Simulated scan of single mutants.
Amino acid sequence: MKDSKMQLEQIEHVDAIEANHFKESYVKALIPLVVRNLSKDWPASKKWSLDYFAQEVGEVEVPLYNSEPAKGKESSRTTAARMLMKDYVTLLKKGPTDLRIFFFNILQKAPELMGDFKYPDLGIKFFKKLPVLFFGGAGSKVLLHYDMDFANNLHFNFVGEKEVFLFPHDQKAFLYHVPHSIVSMESIEFDNPDYDKFPALKYAKGFKVLLKPGDMLYIPSGYWHYIRYKTPSVSLTLRSFPSSSVKRLKFLKSILFTMHFDNIMRKLRGQNWIDYKNKIAVETAEKAMRGRYN
């Protein structure tokens, strides 16, 4: 089913899938998929709740992020606040909040949780040093971006609901990709886009899905993703690095050059650098639209 304006398709759902079929038809083909109840036999499916995290890892201090765009000479990865996990859970229960826990490394910060989940047999090799949790409050959002390591991500949702928008990597021109970064223009809300201001979005082809507890979303390598939390939500991501040497080189370029160059330019030029990059993003999108017209 297509969205009325953006060219978005609903992601296919299955109740189970065989490893070879998953690898050949989805991983190699770079097609997203939702598998229901893949984690139903994990202890996490019964134990993980907001109260469980408050009790088990409540004394762990966690960095919190919001969706406010970086301004001036601010780093693009600045934390908005820090608090104990138990206090963050209390905040989530109080009502909507824009504060999120991003990339909470279980192995480093809460190894006692490692026994609550398993690595599924889906024909892919996981990077087992980086199982990460994501928390978000009702109404919070994750700005559109792609992962610089180009990993294949298995995103397991355990608590709450959230809407996810996905776009193949080659749609970046229509998504107002900001140069020297892995993000789109931060003023765009993809669940409520302003087509008058950002008309190229109508040409971007992608997918959307509402994740519910028990759902596993496969996010293919290089895919752009935007997330809006409908309710307080907790998810786990397991990562599998691609075998492509081209993507590995892109990862190294991002780590060794792109991030450092962008941060240096932010410090040197401040808001002028951000405005310049956004200007280029708009010009690139307009050029992509003209290509469609022609």
Rank of each mutant, 00 (worst) to 15 (best):
V132H: 03
F135L: 07
P43T: 10
N37V: 00
M83R: 12
F126G: 07
P63D: 14
P111F: 11
Y119R: 07
K118G: 04
F134D: 04
E74L: 07
D149V: 09
K94H: 02
K109F: 12
K73Q: 15
K129M: 12
E61W: 13
K125L: 11
K93H: 03
R82E: 15
K129T: 13
L144Q: 02
L107F: 02
L133D: 04
P96G: 01
E68A: 14
Y88C: 08
K93N: 12
K86C: 13
S39G: 09
A110E: 07
P131M: 03
L143N: 11
L113P: 04
S75P: 08
S45F: 14
K141S: 13
D87S: 14
E59Y: 12
N153T: 13
T90C: 04
Y146W: 14
F158V: 04
V57H: 01
F127T: 14
L143W: 01
T90E: 15
V57Y: 02
K141Q: 15
H145L: 03
L122E: 04
S49N: 13
S49Q: 05
F104P: 06
T79P: 08
D149W: 06
N157H: 03
K125C: 05
Y52C: 05
A110N: 08
K40G: 06
G115F: 09
A138V: 00
A44S: 13
G160A: 09
N66S: 09
F127Y: 14
D121I: 01
G58E: 08
L107Y: 03
F135R: 04
P63V: 11
N105S: 06
D147E: 12
K125Q: 13
P111I: 09
F103Q: 14
L64N: 05
A44V: 03
Y146K: 07
H145F: 05
L144I: 01
F53H: 02
S75Q: 07
K118H: 11
R82P: 00
K129L: 10
F156H: 10
W42K: 08
D87E: 15
K125M: 06
K73C: 11
W48D: 10
L143T: 06
K71H: 15
M148S: 07
W48N: 11
G139P: 02
M85K: 05
L92V: 07
T78D: 08
F103M: 09
E112C: 10
P120W: 00
T90W: 00
E112A: 13
L130S: 12
K46Y: 09
K86P: 05
L107N: 11
K128T: 15
R100P: 00
E59T: 14
G160W: 03
N105P: 01
K46V: 09
L91Y: 01
N157E: 04
H145D: 02
L50K: 13
V60G: 02
D87A: 13
L107I: 06
I106R: 07
M114D: 03
E74P: 11
Y88R: 07
L38Q: 08
A54Q: 05
L144E: 00
N157S: 12
I101C: 07
L92Y: 02
A54W: 02
S75M: 10
Y52L: 06
F150P: 08
I106H: 03
F103P: 00
L133N: 04
E61H: 15
A151F: 14
A54H: 04
M114W: 00
F117M: 02
L99C: 01
P63W: 12
L91S: 01
P69Q: 10
V159N: 10
